[in-house]
Design a protein around this nucleic acid. Structure first.
Length: 210
DNA sequence: AAACGGATTGGCT
DNA sequence: GCCAATCCGTTTC
């Protein structure tokens, strides 16, 4: 049990990731704390920006139309693992796979606010954590936490990467919903308001107009 | 076997 | 604000 002087810090239970409502999860993950431990170095950040990718029916999803390739196979797994892929040949983009096996839903983590291991984050990014660009945008956020493609398919309840609830909650008034970034090819699905971010948080990525 | 293009970033104007 | 960088996954030949 905890009291008022003691914050509750617990790993999200396995069942959290089985939720079949990925839109809810994308919003609910705001304020949760994403950790990595690499070579004994622990870093973490508060999730402040996400996007939901709604499986086979979402034209912006890699799994749209039920596509199954070596790469997308990860998305079809039961929720609770990571999906990391290389974008533009340079950037590792980190997603949280959710829902039940066969339902390729995922939440893209687009920005974090550095919380733990700030010196390590600064070394990885070669800039101070006071600078918003340190973990703003999906490629930068992943790099700040040391996430690369070797993290693909890792268990989110493992020793290398996990998510904690620190009791940080945002009200609806503190959260904005906006169209997802960089998915113009998804036609009408590009208009869906499936990008969520914490208003006025400086680590939220550039396209922060609604 | 070869071509195509992207869930982006950062440096330069 | 604009645009080059960069290379793997996927599609096409």
């Amino acid at each position: 049990m905890s009291n008022n002087s003691e914050q509750s810090h617990h790993k999200l239970p396995f069942s959290y990731y089985l939720n079949q409502d990925v839109i809810f999860l994308a919003k609910d993950l705001l304020g949760k704390v994403l950790y990595t431990q690499i070579n004994g170095e622990t870093t973490a950040g508060i999730i402040v920006e996400t996007e939901a990718y709604f499986g086979v029916q979402d034209k912006a999803s890699h799994a749209y139309g039920g596509r199954r390739t070596n790469r997308t196979e990860t998305l079809y797994s039961q929720g609770g693992i990571s999906y990391v892929y290389l974008c533009y040949g340079i950037h590792n983009l980190f997603n949280i796979v959710s829902s039940v096996e066969g339902e390729p839903h995922a939440v893209l983590i687009r920005a974090i606010e550095p919380l733990v291991g700030k010196d390590i984050i600064e070394a990885r990014r070669n800039m101070p954590v006071t600078k918003a660009a340190v973990s703003s945008g999906p490629g930068s956020a992943a790099k700040a936490l040391g996430i690369d493609r070797t993290f693909n398919q890792k268990d989110l309840n493992g020793e290398e990467i996990w998510v904690e609830d620190h009791g940080i909650r945002y009200s609806n008034e503190e959260i904005s919903a906006a169209p997802r970034v960089g998915v113009a090819y998804a036609q009408e699905d590009a208009l869906l308001l499936w990008r969520f971010f914490v208003k006025d948080n400086k680590y939220v990525s550039k396209p922060n107009k609604i």
